[in-house]
Each structure stands twice: as C-alpha cells, then as structure tokens.
Amino acid sequence: MPLVRTLLVEPAGSVGRYALLLWKAFATLGDMKSYRKNIFDQMVHVGLESMPIVALAAAFSGAVTTVQAAYQLVSPLIPTSIIGSIVVPSMILELGAVLTGFILAGRVGARIAAELGTMRVTEQIDALEAMGLNSVGYLIVPRVLAGVFMFPVLYVVASFVGITGGMAVGVFGGFVPLGEFVAGAREFFQPFDPVFGLIKSLVFGFTITSISCYKGYFTKGGAEGVGRATTEAAVMSCVYLLVADLFLAVTLL
C-alpha cells in the first residue's frame, strides 16, 4: 500500500495540484492589474539579470565546441569549414536553448522556489489571500510570463554570443579562417533551426518557471521545507527540461 501511494497517488496528486495552479494562473491572465507592475520586475530578474552568466556560459560553450570540432574532425580530407557547420547549428539547435535552460533552472528556478516558499512558510501568501488579493495572479502569473517572454530573448543572446565566441576562437586560435567558418555555417543552415530554438526556449521558460512556482507555492515544513523546495525546483526543472527537449525534437524535427 505505501508503494502504491508513493508510485501512483502522490504523483497523481502532484500533477493535479500543478494543473489546478496553472489553471488558476491562466484564469487570472485577463486581470492584468494584479500583475502588470510585477511582471516587469520579474522580467528584469529573470531576463536582464541572468544575461551576464548566460552570455559567459554561451561564449565558452561556443569556443569549446570550436576547439573540439577542430581537434576531432579537421584533417587533410575534411575542409575546415566543417567547424562552422558544427558550431552554428549546435548553438542554434541545442546549446543556446539547453544551456540557457540549465543555467536558469539553477538561478531563476531556485530563486522563484525560495521566494515563494519563504512567503508560504512565513504565511505571507495567506496574508495576501486574507487581504483579498489573488495570490496566484499576483505571484505566479508574472513569474511564468516573465520566463515565457525572457527565455527566448536569453536564447537569442546565448546563440549570438556562443557563435561569436566560437568564431573568435576559431579565427584567432588559427583553427579556421572567418570566411570558411561562415561558409560552412551557411552551407548547412536551415531557417527552421532558429525558429525551433525559439520554440524550445519558450517551452523551457514555461517549464522552469511553472515548476519552480509550483514547488515554492506548495512549500511545507519551515526553513527546511524551503531548502527542500528550492532543491527540488532546480532538479525537477532540469529533468523536465530534458524531457521537453526530447519531446520537441521528436515532434518538430
């Protein structure tokens, strides 16, 4: 019986609570007064404040991809332009979105869960409800919308910086001339690739922020519960991010 409870009842309850929370959030979308000001604050926290770490990680990822591509593939039989055709699609299709997602799962997801968890255990959320404010509309909707809007922006920045970093290391490191890098990238470039990356980042933004909000909103157990919720938010965001990545790749590519 405990096994059934662990394997079936509790996951079903979690899915149900998550779905109801999202339902309430979507139901309050029209009530912009409750989150209009808060959404820009969250966009700054989620988007602008995450930009330096995302750009840093993307630049190094692009650079490392270039060096590894040169190390593994460049030979007299393979043109050096192959580096460009590996680095650019890698950043656009996978690294730009997934790298940003992992960084934000740790940075933004943990922050959201910690914020909401603390508000829950200190009964601030109950106070909001007591004052007649819609806590879901006031706390969750702006965070989820900020993630949905700002993740694509961060994805664009990550892809741009990553490709630039890869290009710079390739050229200044003597691995590939700029012209060949660009020629290789153009040879295999497909217009749907950046669109696919945007769709992924949008889905990742929604996944990370909504899971983190769920974990924080339903935090129990005081300070220890906040810590547990924060960890679970970061871990579960990463897990579902990978699941969503596979799902999107299978369905859209």
Binding site: F40, D41, M43, V44, L48, M51, M150, V153
Partner: peptide
C-alpha cells in the same frame, strides 16, 4: 524596468 525590458 519597462524601458529596460522593451529595449532588450
């Protein structure tokens, strides 16, 4: 924040 977000 609106200007920062919009410009970004």
């Amino acid at each position: 924040n609106e200007i920062k977000v919009g410009a970004t």
